[in-house]
Amino acid sequence: DNLVIALHSYEPSHDGDLGFEKGEQLRILEQSGEWWKAQSLTTGQEGFIPFNFVAKA
């Protein structure tokens, strides 16, 4: 599955970004460039995340 774990917390800075906490698990929905579309397994919310803040779970 496309699961990743957050290496750092991220505060959203643009509409459509997904904020998350360090250690949170996310499911990657789309990989494109440096911003990936993801869904939080904690909150169920979707949005874009910086790819370098996460690692394969």
Rank of each mutant, 00 (worst) to 15 (best):
52 N>F: 09
1 D>L: 10
16 G>L: 09
17 D>E: 15
32 S>A: 11
17 D>R: 10
24 E>G: 00
10 Y>F: 12
35 W>M: 13
9 S>K: 13
31 Q>A: 14
11 E>V: 14
57 A>M: 15
18 L>H: 02
34 E>C: 15
3 L>V: 13
32 S>P: 03
3 L>W: 08
18 L>W: 04
41 L>Y: 05
33 G>S: 06
19 G>M: 07
48 F>G: 01
41 L>T: 08
49 I>K: 00
8 H>F: 15
37 K>Y: 15
20 F>L: 05
10 Y>K: 07
8 H>W: 14
7 L>T: 08
43 T>H: 02
26 L>I: 06
28 I>H: 00
54 V>K: 00
43 T>G: 03
34 E>Y: 15
24 E>P: 00
32 S>L: 12
13 S>Q: 15
38 A>C: 07
39 Q>E: 09
12 P>C: 06
53 F>V: 06
28 I>V: 10
53 F>Q: 06
40 S>T: 02
40 S>Q: 04
36 W>Q: 00
46 E>C: 14
49 I>A: 01
14 H>V: 10
38 A>Q: 01
42 T>G: 06
10 Y>A: 02
31 Q>M: 14
26 L>N: 01
25 Q>W: 15
16 G>P: 02
7 L>W: 06
4 V>P: 00
47 G>E: 01
35 W>L: 09
27 R>C: 08
40 S>P: 00
30 E>V: 09
27 R>G: 01
42 T>K: 14
23 G>T: 03
16 G>A: 07
13 S>L: 15
15 D>K: 13
41 L>R: 02
41 L>M: 12
52 N>S: 11
10 Y>M: 04
50 P>D: 05
6 A>K: 01
7 L>Q: 06
15 D>P: 15
33 G>A: 05
25 Q>H: 12
47 G>C: 06
52 N>T: 11
20 F>Q: 00
13 S>G: 10
41 L>E: 05
47 G>Y: 05
15 D>H: 11
21 E>M: 12
31 Q>S: 12
4 V>Q: 05
27 R>S: 04
31 Q>L: 07
40 S>N: 11
33 G>K: 04
34 E>I: 14
6 A>M: 06
50 P>M: 05
5 I>C: 09
57 A>Q: 13
37 K>M: 12
1 D>E: 13
53 F>W: 08
57 A>D: 11
39 Q>N: 02
49 I>S: 00
13 S>I: 15
54 V>G: 02
57 A>R: 07
20 F>I: 07
31 Q>W: 12
10 Y>N: 02
41 L>V: 10
19 G>F: 06
8 H>K: 14
52 N>C: 13
3 L>C: 07
48 F>H: 06
20 F>T: 01
35 W>H: 08
1 D>G: 11
12 P>I: 06
19 G>T: 06
13 S>W: 10
47 G>H: 01
39 Q>G: 03
55 A>S: 11
7 L>P: 05
36 W>G: 03
18 L>E: 02
15 D>A: 13
46 E>L: 11
44 G>E: 05
32 S>Y: 13
50 P>E: 03
4 V>S: 04
16 G>S: 09
9 S>L: 05
43 T>L: 02
2 N>F: 15
8 H>A: 11
15 D>Q: 12
28 I>R: 00
37 K>L: 15
44 G>Q: 07
5 I>N: 03
41 L>A: 05
41 L>P: 04
41 L>C: 11
14 H>W: 09
44 G>H: 07
8 H>N: 08
18 L>F: 06
40 S>K: 14
